[in-house]
Simulated scan of single mutants.
Amino acid sequence: MTDALGELSAAGVAVWLDDISRERLTAGGSHTALSKLVDESHVVGVTSNPTIFAGALGGSDDYDVQLHDLKVRGVSVDEAVRMLTTYDIRWACDVMRPAFDASDGVDGRVSIEVDPRLADQTEPTIAEAKQLWWLVDRPNLFIKIPATRAGLPAITATLAEGISVNVTLIFSLERYRAVMDAWLAGLEQAKANGHDISKIESVASFFVSRFDTEIDKRLEKIGTPDALALRGQAAVANARLAYGAHLEVVNGQRWAALKAAGAKPQRPLWASTGTKNEAYPDTLYVEQLIAPNTVNTMPEKTMKAFADHGKVPGDTITGNLQSAEMAIDGLRAVGVDYDDVVEFLERDGVAKFDASWKELLAGVQAKLEQA
């Protein structure tokens, strides 16, 4: 039997799980357990978001004992959510600690997101990031900060505090370049502040499948043969061009000075990699986005699909940058407004996570009342 996930790892793609729950942490030898996925599926990282937590807490009784204790203490629903989620993240960090140690801190990371209601507020985001870092208290934590306009200075300020950051909700190439600028500035300030910058990690989460979903909708509305022929190409092309932008930065002089001081590069992370259109291969956003020093965070369904029938033909990004540029140009040529698409996706992404956070709060409130 082939080991497709092992081959993917050998090609330079870190395999991360896009899911977390108390059930995964307590499942022991079950095939769904995080520890089992680490041992058998080459998983070296974990990401979470408000939607994942809303689902985990809403459909499980694994949190009941902690919920009872929180109710006895009379905590607010906001504090209860923070205690429940940081407990899971801290536990997951401990499960992933061997991968963290084995990779000199590059992998073995677990991500927790700042309150999405703060997406357009810089100072509260910084304060929230610092509090989460303190609450979890594990060196292999990532604080997820959205790449909104208000998020950019928060990213710099958080890194400057010596805190590792997963920048999330990136859709546009222009915003990704701004994210890399914010990351470099954060490392420069961290160095000036006396932090050991070799200990500060960062990834930049570029969302994939949502891009195709929105672009395809617009292409079908246009309806011409040229427009319809471009369906299913935009997301991969966009991500490939993001990798090209990453290469430009890590080959530049500004990064060279930080590298000489011990810093590690910010890796592109491919997020939202489960295909939403059943007409597309279920491994599309894994097979077409293979390159060294990248991360692919997958839902378990996608991970299992790739383990079963995924292929690793080698680097599928670097040699395809020109064709990716042509695909994005083709979108504009048939009338798709790229800037409008990425602006919409950012707003929509923030709104969806905000709705999930409110769902999480409501669910915890109901469980506190029942406890």
Rank of each mutant, 00 (worst) to 15 (best):
I222K: 09
R210I: 07
L219W: 01
V208T: 06
D216C: 08
K221L: 08
L219E: 00
W183R: 05
I200T: 01
L187R: 05
D196M: 01
F206C: 01
F206N: 01
Q189L: 14
D212N: 10
E220A: 10
E188Q: 15
K199A: 03
G186Y: 04
L184A: 03
A185Q: 11
E220I: 09
G223A: 11
H195I: 10
L184M: 09
K199I: 00
D216F: 15
G194S: 11
I215P: 02
W183Q: 03
I222L: 14
G223E: 13
K217F: 09
I200K: 00
I222H: 13
A185D: 08
E214M: 09
E220P: 02
E188R: 09
R218H: 03
I215G: 02
G186V: 05
A185K: 11
S202A: 15
V203I: 09
G194Y: 11
L187E: 04
K199S: 01
N193S: 07
V203K: 08
D196G: 00
K217A: 14
L219V: 01
D212W: 06
K221G: 03
S202M: 04
R210W: 14
A190N: 15
R218Y: 02
I200R: 00
E188F: 15
T213D: 07
K221F: 14
S202T: 13
R210H: 12
Q189D: 14
K221A: 13
Q189E: 12
D196R: 04
E201G: 15
I200D: 00
L219M: 02
K217P: 04
K199C: 00
E220K: 09
F211M: 09
T213R: 13
I197N: 05
D216Y: 14
I200N: 00
T213E: 09
L219G: 01
E188N: 12
S198V: 03
F211N: 05
A190C: 11
N193R: 08
K217L: 14
R210E: 08
R210T: 08
F211W: 12
D212K: 07
K199H: 01
D216W: 12
Q189T: 10
T213P: 02
S198P: 01
W183F: 14
S198M: 01
A190Q: 06
F211A: 08
K191Y: 14
I222V: 15
I222Q: 08
A192W: 10
V208N: 04
I215Q: 03
E201R: 14
I197Y: 12
K221V: 13
E201V: 08
I215T: 08
E188H: 14
N193H: 11
K217Q: 12
S198H: 03
A190T: 07
S209D: 05
V208K: 03
W183Y: 13
T213M: 06
L219S: 01
I197R: 07
S198W: 02
H195R: 09
L184T: 07
K199N: 00
K217H: 08
L184K: 03
H195C: 12
R210P: 06
A190K: 06
E188G: 15
G194I: 06
K191T: 11
